[in-house]
Design a protein around this nucleic acid. Structure first.
Lengths: 351, 351
DNA sequence: GTGAAAGCGCTAACAG
DNA sequence: CTGTTAGCGCTTTCAC
């Protein structure tokens, strides 16, 4: 493989000049530049990124850390979308991503490694538990870092969150407006921000409507289909007339258990989910849900991080993106015929 | 941040010795080793990976390239599982992954970049189109490379494939054994290996049973929910009594369209899918499907690649992993009550 | 504008 | 067993 020196020799200039050319330095005479470019084209020279990184002190690579819930990755498109958004934004900014899926076994090992990892210029952390120690370690490391989602200690960190509380509030409020009275909740783990915040929104909406909060109606689950099924089975004993599930996968699980019990959705039990990442459109009946801008979170995280890498002196940036109620048929607001509507993502409408 | 030199000075040895210690060289006296380790512990020294990579000529990092179908990432858990499997296997072998999600715009740009990318020791390519030029470029680059899935030119490349043809054959055979006569197909694009090979398996099974191949019953689609819906709508005019969908997401789409037309699954139309990555268990009714070992493909790909990195002289390795028929209720082989069974992944059984 | 020289922080012969 | 000596391939002052 070619080196700068060889290209320099071939084009009759110094290594420095070639370096300037490939880095688009303005201080090169056009004629020289052309001459060098020609050789680069002919030889297909590509600079050695490792060497470049060492000399420049920057790798143009960021780390994407997804701490816990490896199992969720299977069914829940959330992380797919995050990963895709981050990768895509990195592409656009000429950065690379390296992916760290933390597994329990490697947790400590990794935390250490990534902190002093000089192979990345910064890191994005997605969906930590509220008390995840990794984040504290990251803060201590002084390394540029952006969190996707909220975290107990994230005030001193930049983060991009979505309005989980507001979304949950809107979901429950919607059910109340439709006349539902016994509204159950299936939430994610309350030691995670989405679990906690959506729970809050649920309580608030009940409170504002003067409805009692009944802890027997508020199930805590994990974000898995199986967990959702179990929670819903317990809830059936409480005879709810509506369920707000803090995640579409939980909502889908709820739908199935409800159907399995011979009840009708939305007539007997209305269901509203949270996410709108694809599961919702293809559920039966199509899910009314809260859309969260996951893709946007990802790209904003990348942009925020790059800004932080370029300007370490910048203050932490805190963004909370709005969520949006998407009304379909699982809530009973309207009962579209089971036809084309299910199959088009363009069939989505805002209430 | 500390350097080897400083650690060397602090522990009163040479830089080389410290290097030996952190690389577990056996040629260090235990006493010296301990002395150095103590300093490393106290100072929290972490070697600079970029410098190490430059000197050693290896980065311990591999690239995972997912060429085309970015859109699929949203709904289809296939890529989630691949990504997760690869990341996890890398973890286990003390490698890192960098993720390249090829977007149309960046295709050419990327191909170039990744080929001469000295930042990775090798690359894994997942799910290319059969004629994807990226693969030819990779072959030319002489860089260690493993393909997940089959490819037109992959004989000179190592690959890990699953038995798509055999799986499709088993699926259709199963339907035939259940007495179905007008068996439709919804396949993925035929310029992809899974699209093509599952189509082949379908034809073979028909042929072996003496059933005619009717091209009006064999729909080509993409691997999206919407595509599956459209294909199924066209198929309804042909009045099939069974559908083999070459992907669970297509099968789920088929289910919905069939239901939407007022037909019963499996009584009037039996459905069998392909993948078994989570969608199948949570479909209504639970999908009979062909399970493909995606996770295993990922880890084998990593192991094969690492072997190739360590031993570039090794011959390309070709693995085809077996698939497995998983019988649930959508095919009519048995009609379990809609109860717990849907919610347990342990409820899976082999026919 | 261009080049010479000095590293970036580490590994790897080669001596001792 | 340990240290000395060269680099790995590039960027970056600093002169000219």
């Amino acid at each position: 493989m070619l080196t700068l020196d060889q290209v320099a020799r071939l084009s009759g200039v110094s290594r420095t000049t070639v370096s300037r050319v490939i880095n688009n330095s303005p201080h090169v005479r056009p004629a020289t530049r052309d001459k060098v470019w020609r050789v680069i084209q002919e030889t297909g020279f590509q600079p050695n990124l490792v060497a470049r990184s060492l000399a420049a002190g920057r790798t143009r690579m960021i780390g994407l850390l997804i701490p816990r819930p490896v199992t969720n990755l299977f069914n829940d498109p959330y992380f797919s979308v995050v990963i895709q958004a981050v990768a895509s934004a990195c592409n656009a900014h000429d950065y690379s991503v390296t992916l760290w899926l933390a597994e329990p076994t490697f947790e400590r090992h990794m935390a250490r490694r990534l902190l002093n990892q000089t192979l990345v210029d910064g890191v994005i952390v997605s969906s930590a538990q509220l008390d995840d120690p990794v984040l504290h370690a990251l803060i201590d490391s002084k390394r540029p870092c952006v969190v996707i989602g909220r975290h107990a200690a994230s005030d001193c960190l930049s983060y991009i969150d979505v309005d989980n509380r507001g979304g949950a509030f809107a979901a429950v409020r919607h059910l109340i407006d439709l006349g539902r009275q016994r509204i159950a909740l299936i939430s994610g783990p309350r030691n995670t921000a989405p679990g906690l915040d959506r729970h809050e929104g649920y309580r608030e909406a009940l409170a504002q409507a003067g409805l009692p909060y009944d802890s027997a109606l508020a199930e805590e689950s994990d974000f898995t289909y199986e967990g959702g099924c179990q929670a819903m089975r317990r809830l059936l004993n409480q005879h709810p007339d509506a369920v707000f599930a803090g995640g579409d996968i939980l909502a889908v699980a709820a739908l199935h258990v409800i159907h399995g019990a011979g009840l009708k959705v939305p007539e007997q039990v209305a269901v509203v989910g949270f996410d709108d990442l694809g599961l919702a459109v293809s559920a039966r009946p199509p899910l009314t849900t809260i859309r969260q801008p996951v893709h946007q979170s990802g790209s904003l995280a990348v942009e925020t991080l790059i800004d932080l890498i370029d300007h370490p002196e910048h203050k932490p940036r805190h963004l909370v993106l709005p969520t949006e109620l998407i009304v379909r048929t699982s809530c009973g607001a309207r009962c579209a015929q089971v036809s084309d509507v299910n199959c088009r993502s363009t069939g989505l409408e805002t209430a």
